[in-house]
């Protein structure tokens, strides 16, 4: 078994394929996620990051390409048992804590849903005990089990969502902008919870976000997406130190810092895809500029980048 838990190969997701309304939400992306690491996926709204997460967990059927989990293609037809097992190992945390919990169900039943589906508990007392354990893991009280979602704050709801995902003992969690709907003080709470859980349970994360500073804090490696394509992928520190692609530079230049002196001189670099001025026969590919540092570029750009790389 390799140490790559997830391997995404040439994944494509086109909506309304073949029609005039075709949308290429994901256009041929490839990346790997190592066991136990956090892979951050950033990009602007509508660039396909959430679609990537949802396609990986089979909420959408991929148009082309493969997603390998432990070497098994998740989209290939499988027996019910294998599908079931895969559902248990891959879980998702959703963006909007107000939409991700069924308002008609008690917290107990929300968290226990996975336990019921996968038959992980025997009897009512065992079920309740498991839920209470999970609530305590995410920092909530046992009394919360009997309450309804509308009685909780956004941060508490998000933690209930995390407990629901953890209930089935997953190995890999896709966190789809889990903090973007929360206010800053609660964001740190949730991110720290995710980090603790990673250490405790050896989880692997795909962390989707548009907040670059938070992504840098939690991720080991980061992929930058732009209009359905992965434009740059590198270890977190390397990406921040040496952004190569013009779009990454533009994204980084947009981060505000609570430092008035820096802010006064901060220049934003808007990104225009036409600036590349690719010739008609230039092949734009994902190339390795430095070890572990990949950039979507042409042959010519590669040489320039390698020359300037520190």
């Amino acid at each position: 078994m390799s140490d790559n838990l997830i391997e995404v190969r040439n994944l494509k997701q086109y909506f309304n394929a073949g029609k005039s309304t075709e949308v290429r939400a994901i256009d041929d992306i490839s990346f790997t996620i190592k066991r136990g690491e956090t892979f951050g996926l950033v990009g602007e709204s509508g660039c396909g990051k959430s679609t990537t997460g949802r396609t990986m967990i089979r909420l959408y059927d991929a148009t082309a390409g493969q997603v390998l989990y432990n070497g098994v293609d998740v989209h290939a037809p499988k027996s019910k048992k294998e599908n079931h097992e895969l559902n248990r190992k891959m879980q998702m945390i959703f963006q909007d804590p107000y939409a991700s919990l069924n308002p008609r169900m008690k917290v107990l039943d929300i968290i226990a849903e996975g336990l019921d589906i996968h038959g992980l508990v025997k009897g009512k007392t065992d079920r309740k005990q498991r839920v209470i354990d999970l609530l305590e893991i995410v920092g909530l009280n046992r009394e919360h089990a009997e309450r309804y979602p509308h009685e909780f704050s956004g941060g508490q709801r998000q933690r209930i969502g995390i407990a629901r995902a953890l209930a089935v003992d997953p190995e890999f969690i896709i966190a789809d902008e889990p903090i973007s709907a929360l206010d800053v003080s609660i964001q740190a709470q949730v991110v720290n919870l995710l980090k603790e859980l990673q250490v405790e349970k050896g989880l692997t994360y795909l962390f989707i976000a548009h907040d670059l500073s938070m992504v840098k804090y939690i991720s080991d490696r980061i992929g930058v997406m732009y209009f359905g394509k992965l434009v740059e992928m590198a270890p977190a520190d390397e990406l921040y130190r040496n952004p190569m692609h013009a779009y990454t530079k533009s994204l980084l230049s947009a981060i505000p810092l609570p430092d008035p002196i820096y802010e006064r001189s901060r220049v934003r670099h808007p990104y225009n895809p036409k600036d590349h001025q690719y010739g008609p026969d230039e092949k734009v590919e994902f190339r390795e500029v430095a070890p572990e540092h990949f950039v979507l570029c042409s042959e010519k750009e590669l040489a320039e980048m390698q020359a300037t790389h520190v």
């Binding site: 089979r58 909420l59 069924n102």
Partner: peptide
């Protein structure tokens, strides 16, 4: 298309369960 239904599907719930419970 609400997220709680998607969550249920990622947990592996069948159509019948989703319709009656969610």
């Amino acid at each position: 298309s609400r997220e709680f239904v998607l969550a249920s599907r990622t947990l592996g719930a069948k159509d019948g369960k989703i319709i009656t419970k969610h």
